[in-house]
Amino acid sequence: MENEFLPRRVRIEETKMMTSLEKWFKLDAQLDFKPGQFLEISVAGAGEAPISICSWNGVEICVRKVGRVSSALHQREKGDFIGIRGPYGNGFPMKEIEGEKLILVAGGLGMAPLRSVLQYVLKNRKKYGEVTFFYGIKCLEMMLFRDELLKLMEEENVNLHIAYEIEDEEIRNLKKRFPERFHKGMVTTLFEKVKVNTESFVVVCGPPIMYKFVLKKMEELGFYKERIYMTLERRMKCGTGKCRHCVVGIGSSSKLICRDGPVFSAIDAELIRELV
């Protein structure tokens, strides 16, 4: 009988410090998963934590050092072993989005799960219409997967726009290299500065406060609620729908984020109290 709680031992192929807080891991594991799904990462002795998969080709995760398990993970290097369970969660409805235009809206660490969507779309580029990527960062130092994204900007395959709060020397040079791609201000301001098609599907991930503003902005611009999807994987524990730490909503409309999510649509947000 397959034990859902028994982690599989996988080797770490590569690691890299992306910023002072986030570390990237490439795992030697073969999994079939959907973009937006997450794994329960286990460090023996420290415990377990839900972390989304931030890739489509291969299994990669990006971990911010913020708790007991993530701090223990940050000590792990190339060649060490960790335990993984999953994949869990519903993931983004990539099939439903086929043939349509797509906007990805990421804030800070929210970039990780959306990179998985981005790589999936790029792998099946013909199946999707115009793809726009809004990425809000505090400062350049906090930008994840910087080289990869700058290369993307050159290829003009995806119109990628960065919203930043703190301007420094480097950003000014990048602005010269990529005119019209770097904008000062919150990620929501990109919706005004860049022409967007309100028919497109939107995929959002970032800190809880960001969802409110982004949803409000899209409502103003007339996007369809059922085409807006968000992932809320910040409040889970067991990942298997048993421990109820991730319960949201009240009464019959209450849901479990790890089993019924972590991806929810803007329609759900109307029905489930405090989802966002």
């Binding site: 023996a44 420290a46 415990g47 067991c238 048993k242 421990c243 109820r244």
Partner: peptide, 24 residues
Amino acid sequence: CQCFEVYDELEEDLKSGNRFRRWD
């Protein structure tokens, strides 16, 4: 009530140990 908490404990050699589940 079905909620539970999961936590790890280390043994003497600091390498082995147990993962516990406890009512929450």
